[in-house]
Design a protein around this nucleic acid. Structure first.
Lengths: 343, 343
DNA sequence: CTGAAAGCGCTTACAG
DNA sequence: CTGAAAGCGCTTACAG
């Protein structure tokens, strides 16, 4: 390997092609007003030299912003993975890179938005759930306002108190769909494993669920929105409310933990107890038993969020509601004989 | 919202603080040689103005490169998701953003490396498998050589013909571990569902497998490295070699498809046929039945790759081999009575 | 310890 | 159609 030669600059291309740097720039960017012959030659020279325009210089000089920032809770979580896949798909269509970062709480969120701003991304997609308490989002709000004010685009996924465009999966409807399904099956003893109460997503799903569950006897406990949260939630239910005939996890990932814990204890699903999730992540159909859940279509939602952010800003905030669909698989059935308990 | 005011610049901060732009820069970057009092004041002013340094200008002016580029096959594939999680974790420790892009073939790979170069990332992590045929990687090789020559860092995951540092999961050992497990169980009719033959990962896993399987009767067919590949592979096996007592998928994602197809047909695992995967993705333990597989620890490997790329370039290429571990779960057992077939 | 100035690699009015 | 020049927002020798 030779001594670190810097990559060729536009100037090098222009020299080699025998034109000015301005003409070279125009040729490479396909700006009108360059004779086709010259433009062609410049392009060939650039190609032959392996010229890659410096995106930083381009952005500094006022060229179009390109990349998109995506903030997720944790990319390893299938919910966020699918959103990321949708966002990356749309971004790739216009050769844009997606810069991904993690943020689980409002404080980290602010820091990540700043980092994305420092990198002058053209758009930011907020994939994490909003907080029920708007005060906790005030700092984020301010940071995003500055970004928007300087021409940035933002789209959130899910309800936020933030004044930004948003794609809104019908979380209330998802909760309701689960409730109606369980009611139709005849369940009246339902244990709900909710995620953190401070999240909008949880609040909405819970609203839909409790609103529709009506007369059924219901207990709600809160746990982390993770497999481990599902495991500990299942344990809590087994201890405190062993007469439950259905365990409702407010996310598929939690449901995975519930199924694991029940399997561990030899409790059969759905014969002894029914289990449901929400999200319909890709593996939901492959679980044991296959999980009854509600499809939110996160990949599509991720894609929709970037499409929304790419649109010209409107005078008024846009929000795009997306439909959900109950997917009945093998983890739910009519309740067992009410006389028995899980203990 | 007011008329798009541009974000504050370093100059604005300097003015407000009553110092030169040079001093402001030094203060904010913690460069030695500024009186503590002045530095403090500048930092406070910057904070109060919501100043976010322009990463592009900083990079252009010769400041440290920051972000890292990650090229995966498809972020929705758990194998890549886990790698991404590891990379993002390490990057976040030093406030770096990870720019993720997709590339499934060498041509796209070249384009993505260019895009990453244009964005002047400091390091590129190549997560996709290398190609058996080095000719197909020639263009990538050239592109990476330019990047390396201009001071970029690169680390590949898995064996490539590329002259770059690499973290090498023991794919040969993984194949061998599966073979030995099956042999110990008494299987002698093994159907192997391999991924695309052109991938190094597949070639290595196959080498280890076939080398150890020795006398056993083995058939090998190639399918896409996906759930669908597993489904069609299982169908092919059922049609062509119904006397197989074990189906070896060369990746967990394919194994998911195999399990789904067998379940569909009412073929019991492991009573009628044993099934194995490789990778040990997070959901492997939650499948029905829980999948016997080989743990590669992709999250750790992703992290190790960035750590490797972050090290000072060495005179000689570095490669870091990582260990694999057989994880026996419920999808394997001794073969059924040899007289029966899957049909 | 501090500042004036050059320069990073582009784009884009402004002239011609 | 083409070019000279200014400027984007920083960092870093170079002086003092």
């Amino acid at each position: 390997m030779t001594r670190a030669p810097r990559p060729p600059r536009l100037l090098d291309v222009a020299d080699r092609a025998g034109v000015s740097i301005a003409t070279a720039s125009r040729s490479l960017n396909g700006v009108a007003g360059v004779s086709p012959a010259v433009a062609d030659r410049v392009r060939q020279v650039a190609e032959s030299m392996g010229f890659v325009p410096n995106a930083h210089a381009r952005s500094l000089a006022g060229g179009q912003e390109s990349s998109v920032g995506l903030i997720v809770g944790e990319i390893g979580d299938p919910y966020f993975t699918e959103i990321a896949s949708g966002v990356i798909g749309i971004a790739a269509e216009s050769d844009r890179l997606v810069q991904i970062c993690h943020a689980e709480d409002p404080e980290t969120l602010v820091a990540q938005v700043r980092l994305l701003r420092a990198n002058r991304v053209g758009a930011i997609i907020l994939a994490g759930s909003g907080m029920v308490d708007p005060v906790r989002e005030a700092a984020v709000e301010a940071e995003l306002a500055s970004f928007l004010a300087s021409g940035g685009r933002v789209a959130a996924i899910g309800r936020h108190s933030l004044a930004v465009d948003a794609v809104l999966p019908d979380n209330v409807g998802a909760g309701r769909a689960v409730a109606e399904h369980l009611l139709a099956l005849g369940h009246s003893q339902v244990a709900v494993l909710a995620g953190p109460a401070e999240l909008n997503t949880v609040a909405d799903r819970l609203d839909g669920l409790l609103g529709a569950l009506g007369s059924a006897r219901v207990t709600v406990t809160h746990h982390p929105f993770s497999r481990e949260g599902g495991v500990s939630g299942a344990r809590a239910v087994l201890d405190a409310t062993p007469d439950a005939t259905a365990i409702v996890a407010l996310s598929d990932v939690m449901a995975i933990g519930v199924l694991a814990e029940l399997r561990e204890r030899g409790i059969r699903v759905p014969q002894d107890v029914s289990v449901t999730g929400i999200d319909d992540i890709a593996v939901a159909a492959e679980l044991s038993p296959a999980l009854t859940t509600v499809r939110l279509s996160m990949t599509e939602i991720g894609a929709a969020a970037l499409v929304l952010a790419d649109q010209e800003p409107a005078a008024t905030l846009r929000s795009e509601a997306t439909a959900v669909e109950l997917v009945v698989r093998s983890s739910t059935a009519a309740p067992r004989n009410p006389a028995t308990t899980l203990r």
